[in-house]
Amino acid sequence: MLKKWTRDMSVELHWMKRDLVRRWRLDTPTGIMGILILISGFFLFMVIGGGVAHIFRSFVPLVSGSRVGEVYWQSVSFGIKTSFIFVIFSGSIIMYFLLKLSNRR
């Protein structure tokens, strides 16, 4: 009984996946870039939120002299992470629009 149920569920999931890929055209370059935009946007949101929370935690109780270096390197790593993910995000948006424009011609 369990074997039959798992086999039926796997068949249903397979056809659901195929239907989603065909309906939303996820197998095209535009669909892949759309997925990349969503993932990089989510990561950018998480990094910015984590950075704001870290800065808030560091500066609300005034930073003592021994923690100044730690706060400095945290802000440098925050800037590097944010800029790297922002470059990926903006590059994927540009590629998405270029693919959309070239696809219509």
Rank of each mutant, 00 (worst) to 15 (best):
F43L: 10
I85D: 05
T30Y: 06
G41V: 03
L99P: 01
K4I: 14
R22S: 14
L62K: 07
L26V: 15
V11D: 09
S77W: 12
M9R: 07
G41Q: 03
L44D: 07
S75A: 12
M9W: 11
M1K: 04
M1N: 05
V87G: 15
R7T: 08
P61H: 01
L36K: 15
F45N: 06
G50R: 09
L44M: 11
F78R: 02
L98S: 04
S90W: 07
L99R: 05
K17M: 13
S40K: 06
I93R: 03
M16P: 07
F59R: 02
I37H: 02
V68W: 06
F86R: 00
L20S: 11
Q74G: 15
R67K: 09
L44I: 12
L26G: 05
T28M: 10
M95R: 07
T82L: 03
G49M: 15
W73H: 12
S77Q: 08
R7H: 04
F86T: 08
F78I: 06
R57I: 02
F59P: 00
L99C: 01
D8Y: 07
E12Y: 08
V87I: 15
S75N: 05
T30D: 12
K100P: 01
M95G: 02
I93D: 02
F86V: 03
S58K: 11
V47T: 05
K3R: 10
T6C: 04
